[in-house]
Design a protein around this nucleic acid. Structure first.
Lengths: 338, 338
DNA sequence: GTGAAAGCGCTAACAA
DNA sequence: TTGTTAGCGCTTTCAC
């Protein structure tokens, strides 16, 4: 029988053309042992001639693994997140996996539904920046055997491998740094106070203020979108008579910088500031933006390492946690002599 | 026989528990007609009770479609690209598709190998920002029936649907705008001159200069990484005695801005400039960065629309091209009165 | 070393 | 309206 028309050649076609059994062709495809050299060559030649391409769906169906991993993040706007994705993707590629990326928008319900979608596609692993950190909102829908690594947020009492950064210590350091400039009424601005990162950074900031016997001044919004220029003026600049501002994440910084500009204030001059999270042009502002920079590539690397170690097997049951240092980059906006 | 342990329930399990045939269960799963209401309810109840989740790999294997689309871009650093990805992803989600993202690094060989990977996973569609635009470097490995939409680069003589922007016209406009400020020795800086976008933008710039009977001054590098401060100083500022600079893409602008800073020049004041591509903090520089802004979300939307229209069927054979307008945003660095 | 046959979980002809 | 029977393209016992 001739090869069916209008359909990509299958392994059966290859086997037939090479006059070997299906199993032998399969062995060659999978580079398993016990095939004579000449047959290997022959079969490979036929594969090349026919333009054979293995159907990964079929492989996955039979072998119960898809060689795909899922990745769920809140939002693709944040360059920090994109860097993590890039690093995970690179690692996945070199391990023969593809990455399916989904966004939750920070909503646990959307997150659940995205996980569901990915699970139905039989992903082998999941790298996720959870939308909720106080409780575990998705373990119940994870199938047994799906390896999960979390990053950014750390879910309380969860049993996943996770990668985090020194949120608390770095926030403490940044606070201390500004205190060192003689700034006293430093206002920390955060959003979504239930998040692990927000809580930790606030805690680090408070430690710093306490240590200097100063009153903590935190302004926590339910969501970053509420951080308007009017709010900034009223709640931060006037109510607290802020000497300096410490925005606790990328989006907060963005809104604060834009807000200050709108209010006619010069960032760094009128209002010293250290940002948690860096910006592509941060160094080019006047003065340069001082930041706490998260090691995003390394974070992605580590998340991927934890995941693929488990997928390769041989890792113990208990969850592993990696904590990476964030680095303070001083460029001027913190109030340093410019 | 009881449901096998340690394995997710299958449709067979559902059918058995609900005392119906496999096919009937399948009908309910696929919401096809011709099932009695009560059976539908019963089967759905069993599905819920068992926590049944369809295996998309199996579905895809049988139906010859994976409900997955692939997306290949050069690089995830560029926010313009990330915006496009986000828009495509959103559209995919609402159409019941997932997106597998891969990066080519701008290398046609890597691009081919990523396409190969995606094809093996039986993707139904591909949205790609090609690495090469002068020739078609990957049509030969596309299986029949795979729908492809290109964006950013337009491949000469290819038969794909594609989305592009008004590269030439917008470059022309930006050039004219700077000429309007009395700037004469405007130097366009681009990289990878073989790319469609570079060629078009250079052409638009030249048109603008010609129109004013001025000599065109283009500095084209093989790759953006060669755009060092030294090169900028020697080739652009000194050799051409540049009055103004027109960097032709995001990475070029980044390098130019950093280079000028390193050389102690004030962007916009000492060296007026309009960037092709915007930056998150562009408005906050002093002076604000004037840019040609690509409609990235819309571009992603349109690419997805073209793709899903084809996947739904009923679209004619001939390739469709959508051209979207880029918008000039004037903030000051172009030499406007500040 | 090699192959025959079963079956992964699902869909789809074709009957009934 | 429902069920039976083949497969989709591959891997995997288990026998030879």
């Amino acid at each position: 029988m001739a090869i069916r028309k209008n359909r990509a050649p299958t392994l059966v076609d290859v086997a037939r053309e090479a006059h070997v059994s299906l199993k032998t062709a399969s062995r060659v495809l999978n580079k398993s042992a016990n095939v004579r050299e000449e047959k290997i060559a022959k079969i490979q030649a036929v594969m090349a001639r026919l333009g054979y391409r293995p159907n990964e769906l079929a492989r996955g169906l039979k072998s119960h693994k898809s060689s795909a991993i899922g990745m769920i993040v809140a939002n693709l706007s944040n360059p920090f997140i994109v860097n993590v994705i890039r690093a995970v993707q690179e690692a996945a590629r070199s391990n023969g996996y593809v990455v399916i990326v989904a966004s939750s928008g920070g909503d646990p319900d959307v997150e659940r539904s995205e996980i569901e979608t990915l699970v139905r596609r039989q992903i082998d692993g999941l790298v996720i920046a959870p939308a909720e950190s106080r409780r575990d909102t998705f373990s119940d829908i994870l199938p047994a055997g799906l390896e999960v690594v979390t990053f950014d947020q750390v879910i309380r009492a969860a049993r996943f491998d996770s990668v985090a950064i020194t949120n608390r210590r770095s926030a403490h350091e940044a606070t201390q740094h500004m205190l060192g400039h003689g700034l006293r009424r430093i206002v920390a601005i955060g959003a979504r106070p239930h998040l692990y990162t927000t809580r930790e950074r606030v805690a680090g900031y408070r430690e710093g203020m306490n240590h200097a016997s100063l009153e903590s001044r935190t302004c926590l919004l339910k969501h970053e979108s509420l951080l308007t220029p009017e709010w900034l003026d009223k709640e931060v600049l006037r109510r607290h008579e802020a000497d300096a501002i410490f925005p606790l994440n990328w989006i907060c910084t963005l809104h604060v910088l834009r807000g200050l500009r709108e209010l006619g204030k010069k960032t760094g001059r009128d209002v010293p500031l250290i940002s948690f999270d860096d910006f592509e042009l941060g160094e080019l502002l006047t003065p340069g933006l001082s930041v706490v920079q998260q090691p995003s590539e390394m974070l992605g690397h580590e998340a991927a390492r934890l995941l693929f170690e488990r997928l390769k097997g041989g890792v113990g049951q208990h969850p592993r946690t990696v904590v990476l240092p964030a680095e303070m980059i001083i460029r001027g906006s913190c109030g340093c002599r410019q």
